[in-house]
């Protein structure tokens, strides 16, 4: 038996959120992650708690717009809000994102749980010459 204790390693929900965000943005047809009120309020809540605890660091807590991750009993649930390129079928893009995130989460050693994707906008890419915002309702 080794005299040195094994070092515990923790895969946090922030890490999974970071991986999920990068995986989504690397998927063809994804323009960006869409921030939601839920994300912002969670972010503000983290900042407030940090202030209340008089944390020594003044750095902003990790923020992942459009990603909400919970890890429980080795299972990672991911909710992702995205905007897709109108040149792609949004449903196919969302399905590809789900499959890629499932694979990415598996590689961390966690079990992929519910992977929920919401397509909140379908737009022309901002660099396209013909791009214009959709007509508001």
């Amino acid at each position: 038996m080794s005299e040195h204790p094994l070092e515990a390693r923790l895969i946090s929900s922030d890490l999974i959120a970071d991986l999920a965000a990068r995986t989504a943005l690397d998927t063809p047809g994804v323009l960006r992650l869409e921030p939601t009120l839920k994300n912002l309020l969670i972010h503000l809540g983290k900042g407030t708690l940090q202030n209340l605890r008089r944390a020594e660091t003044r750095t902003t807590p990790a923020r992942h717009d459009g990603v909400f991750v919970t890890v429980h009993h080795g299972i990672a649930d991911v909710q992702l809000d995205i905007a897709t390129d109108i040149a792609f079928a949004a449903l196919n893009v969302a399905q590809a994102v789900r499959e890629q995130i499932t694979r990415t989460v598996s590689h961390t050693g966690l079990t992929p749980g519910r992977i929920d994707i919401s397509v909140l906008a379908i737009e022309h890419p901002p660099t396209a010459a013909t791009a214009r915002p959709p007509t508001p309702l």
């Binding site: 969302a94 749980g113 519910r114 994707i117 906008a121 379908i122």
Partner: peptide, 11 residues
């Protein structure tokens, strides 16, 4: 294992 939703505004 989860689902996909699309916002009314996107469509």
């Amino acid at each position: 294992q989860g689902g996909i939703t699309i916002s009314e505004q996107a469509i």
